[in-house]
């Protein structure tokens, strides 16, 4: 049993989770437990979530338990926002960890009432910026360029946001890992000796900015909706009133989970984000030099 920190939670896990920050005192009480177990799955539905070419299947039962199953990797059952059961189908520890700390842990975060976005986030000065966009729009690349420029990484791919009593949004620091394509490594002139290949045969590298990883939730100041559409202005303020509809498109789990009260909460929380943070439509800068120039402007602004 190991104890880790991620998303401002203490996580006790029966499987190794090398992406997460290990905590010394394993006797501390955990917020979330990850438990090896067989899982009795209900009928599962297909989703649009893919990881390593495998499509996730998902379901929810009447008690609010969320099921997630990746063929050949693992099946999960998230209960009550505090227990994640995992039924592994492989012995590949790295693969199990990768799938556990993404959407599966996301199911727990959803049950804990957090706003989830398919986004990468960084801390710039004392505030957080989140980057959203279709796959390939440049979320991780943009976050990487910010980190290269001295920002702290907060999350890659899955961003969880909590709210204070005044409904102000805060990004929870996830864990210190950023996965980037080889062309990003080259384009931003990273030293490959500081990076780890993600897995054999995959053209991705893992950047682990272990020092200065923030411990506390960071106030969200800007959301950038990255796109690659030449017909739109390079930078355009997004109408805050439409934010709740737009942010639903960036929900990272099965869209079927956004029903009733959960959909209502997502709408309400998105609208709070629009009240307290700026939302921009941002065409991704053409080329790495333009990206670094924009990042540099954002730091001096």
């Amino acid at each position: 049993m190991s104890l880790y920190r991620a998303f401002d939670l203490r996580i006790h896990s029966e499987i190794l989770l090398p992406e997460l920050i290990p905590l010394e005192n394993a006797d501390q009480e955990a917020d979330v437990k990850i438990v090896r177990s067989t899982v009795d799955f209900p009928d599962l539905e297909p989703t649009s979530i893919h990881r390593r070419g495998i499509m996730a299947q998902s379901a929810e039962d009447v008690n609010g338990a969320i099921y997630l199953r990746w063929e050949g990797v693992a099946g999960y059952k998230a209960v009550n926002g505090d227990t994640l059961y995992i039924e592994p189908y492989t012995d590949d520890a790295e693969l199990l960890s990768l799938f556990t700390v993404s959407e599966a842990l996301g199911c727990i975060l959803l049950q804990r009432g957090l706003l989830l976005l398919h986004a990468s986030s960084v801390q710039v000065g004392s505030v957080a910026y989140s980057f959203l966009g279709e796959p390939g729009a440049g979320k991780s690349t943009t976050a990487t360029a910010f980190v290269k420029h001295g920002s702290h990484l907060l999350s890659d791919d899955l961003t969880a946001i909590c709210f204070d009593d005044n409904n102000r949004p805060f990004v929870l620091p996830a864990y210190p890992q950023l996965k980037i394509w080889e062309n990003t490594v080259n384009g931003l002139n990273f030293d490959k000796s500081e990076l780890t290949p993600v897995a054999e045969g995959i053209n991705k590298f893992s950047l682990r900015p272990g020092v200065n990883f923030p411990a506390e939730p960071i106030p969200l100041a800007k959301i950038f909706l990255l796109h690659d559409r030449p017909e739109l202005p390079a930078t355009q303020k997004f109408s805050p009133v439409e934010a709740p509809i737009e942010l639903v498109r960036h929900f990272p789990l099965s869209a079927r989970l956004l029903r009733g009260k959960v959909h209502q909460r997502h709408f309400q929380q998105s609208s709070w984000c629009a009240t307290h943070a700026q939302i921009w439509n941002k065409r991704r800068p053409a080329g790495f030099a333009a990206l670094e120039k924009w990042v540099s402007e954002q730091h001096s602004a």
Binding site: S239, P240, V241, E242, A243, P244, I245, R259, G260, K261, H263, Q264, F267, S270, S271, A274, T275
Partner: peptide, 12 residues
């Protein structure tokens, strides 16, 4: 969500 002169409503 009610901002300035616009409202977006969700029937959940």
């Amino acid at each position: 969500s009610n901002v300035a002169d616009e409202v977006v409503i969700l029937n959940h």
